[in-house]
Design a protein around this nucleic acid. Structure first.
Lengths: 254, 254
DNA sequence: GAAGTTTTTTGACCTCGATCAAGAACCTCG
DNA sequence: CGAGGTTCTTGATCGAGGTCAAAAAACTTC
């Protein structure tokens, strides 16, 4: 859109050493020199292996994290041991936003597969953002986006059937993959049925059953963790059926 | 804690004309002159009546809102007409945070009873916050708090039984009332069973049944919308049973 | 205060999905 | 390659809670 001070995704990718920090920069149109300043504070660590923790619930909050490659789950643990998955984080997505409030993480984050992560020291980010207004604005957007997404998730969990939940999950994954340049119709699930179920508030058996049912109905092709979406329209229909809020309303009345 | 530049809750209440903007100021320790600057941008409108909309889904986002007195629900509407409650907002709480991302509200907000609201023009707030670092920090906290709360809600909706949900709802209300100086054990519900059910992902009949069951079990005294908590411990136990995440973990391993 | 509307309660029934259980497919490492 | 461990699938059963229906209580309006 505004093309003057905006630099391209490619340029940012280079500036950020191909780190998905692009997510953080692009939509706001940071100036090149600002990107450099941002890039300077990014830490790049060695990749995590499946099962490694990125952070744990209760730890002091120090960084935001951006997933470069791989996948991460965030989860809480109840005192009786079993865990509740609260989110999956794919390449280009940001983690750690939950913790700003009270200075410690409210959930743990663990790699689902070999995963490369960028680390953004939050203090430095705050310093930067007070001198770069567009960065500050962008931080707000990130947080607000998180809120919208969670609100959508709440709506899903609050109302839907198992069918809708699984359909919605697949659509969401599909869109997120697509946005990052991966195939939207053919992808791997790096998480187990167990983890999907925990995330969606379903038993793992229910998830499994729905996958096979969708396969029978020629909506999906499922082979263990490899999923192909054959009939996106039908999937979409299961979700769209409910909670649309844009087109129903007219002008303000206040 | 740090007492030098921090001003008291009382002082802020006066500065803000008793508006619950205190929520926004206090925890960060704004200097008095900053509070004045903040106060200068606050708009105070005439009270809303029950059923009035504060804003509607799809409207352009311009303000944050702070509830002074009364109560507000936020909700989305599905295309087939029925609404999904996504939140209740009591005195001192902030609304509108969901909309920062894409410039328009994702849900509607409507007064549940006669309700006084403070309006904070977001643009001016942003301007202010770039010159008042602690205000910026405070904005982050607000957003992050919202995220934590929603995450908690997701956990609740994802896993719990009807009993747990209703118990958790009551505890949450109780704590929020208490924090604002109202009774924590004796309060009015300004929302209907229908709305509670919608919020908790339950049928209104289920909510009603649980209220009467809790009454039979001498945990509550319920008379239509007037609720007294007789045995908070038992309520708490229903909730605590699950999702605790602090005490189970040891030190980091990363 | 009677008639009409809305909200809440209570009952009866039935469905969806959790749970239990067992088998199949896959993974991994000696 | 085969033993042991996971993870996934499929079947059978059962119960929590949704749905339908109707009565009761409360609130509204004339």
């Amino acid at each position: 859109m505004a093309d003057k001070n905006v630099i391209s995704l490619d340029k940012i990718k280079v500036a950020c050493h191909d780190c998905s920090l692009a997510e953080l920069c692009l939509p706001m149109g940071l100036r090149p020199e600002d990107v450099d300043r941002l890039d300077a504070i990014v830490k790049r660590n060695r990749p995590l292996q499946r099962g490694d923790n990125l952070f744990r619930a209760g730890e002091t909050f120090r960084n935001l994290y951006v997933v470069k490659t791989g996948a991460v789950k965030t989860f809480t643990q109840s005192n009786d041991g079993d865990e509740q998955v609260v989110g999956f984080h794919l390449p280009g997505e940001v983690l750690g936003l939950d913790a700003i409030q009270d200075g410690s993480h409210g959930c743990s984050a663990r790699a689902l597969e070999t995963t490369a992560i960028c680390e953004l020291p939050f203090e430095r980010l705050e310093d930067l953002s007070s001198s770069i207004p567009s960065l500050q604005h962008q931080m707000f957007r990130l947080l607000s986006k998180e809120i919208s997404q969670e609100a959508e998730m709440m709506a899903l969990l609050g109302r839907s059937t198992a069918e809708e939940r699984v359909a919605s999950f697949l659509i969401s994954l599909s869109e997120r993959f697509k946005r990052r340049g991966f195939s939207a119709t053919d992808f791997f699930l790096s998480m187990s049925r167990q983890e999907i179920g925990s995330y969606l508030g379903l038993a793992l058996e229910t998830v499994s059953r729905l996958f096979t049912r969708f396969q029978d109905e020629k909506i999906l092709k499922v082979e263990r963790k490899h999923v192909q979406i054959l009939d996106r329209a039908r999937l979409q229909a299961m979700v769209t059926h409910h909670h649309n809020c844009e087109p129903s309303q007219a002008r303000p009345t206040t």
